Simulated scan of single mutants.
Amino acid sequence: MQIAFVHATARGAVDDTLRTVTDMLRARGHRLAGVLPVPCTDPDRHACDMDLIDLASGACLPIAQRLGRGSTGCRLDGAAIEMAAMAVAGGLATAPADLLILNRFGKQEATGHGFHPVIVTALERGMPVLLGVNDLNRPAFEIFADGLATELPDAPFAVCDWLLPLLRRRAA
């Protein structure tokens, strides 16, 4: 099983690292699947609103409920995450990819939902998987990975050092 995760405590740090890794791998011609967050810059939306970008298709996948700027509740829309996961799964079924990148093993995945089945499918196909994992969901991720995941430093070049040999073997 070729699964690795990046853990960082600073808000947004993992996202920045994964974006840089994505850019570095695309520059080398690798085909990527998965999602990364798109920061919300619309002044009519709350700063915590989030969309995901599908790395294979480029589609924007909204995953936040529109609760208004003054709301304080959780904005995550579980149904929207399920739809985003289905979009990524559909892409994996129709277009080959070298690597699955997901910004978070989050609350949905910790309960076996969201991108959990997509991760399993990628691993069953021998596709390397790279995830972001936060402190809250790390115990669930460690149970899921059963000691087989590699923790990588929050540094793009170190992540690529782990990935590139795996990607070369997949291409061969």
Rank of each mutant, 00 (worst) to 15 (best):
L166A: 09
I101M: 00
L52R: 06
R45E: 10
I81D: 01
D16Q: 15
L166V: 06
S57C: 10
C74A: 07
A172Y: 06
D135H: 15
L136Q: 11
D51V: 01
D135F: 11
M86F: 08
A80D: 03
C160Q: 07
V14I: 12
V118K: 04
A89T: 10
A172D: 15
A8E: 08
V21H: 01
D146F: 03
G90L: 03
A122V: 01
I81V: 13
I119M: 06
P165L: 09
T22Y: 07
H46T: 02
C48Q: 12
F141H: 11
T22H: 10
L36K: 07
C60K: 14
T72G: 11
T72H: 15
G90D: 05
A59C: 03
Q108M: 09
G58W: 11
D98R: 06
M50I: 10
L55N: 05
A155I: 04
G114V: 00
L52W: 12
W162N: 11
A155S: 13
V14W: 07
D16E: 11
A158W: 14
H116Q: 09
Q65T: 10
A8T: 03
R28H: 14
A80R: 10
R11M: 13
L123P: 00
C60P: 03
A13W: 10
T22S: 11
P165A: 11
L136F: 08
R75L: 02
G132M: 05
S57V: 07
R31W: 06
A172M: 15
R169N: 12
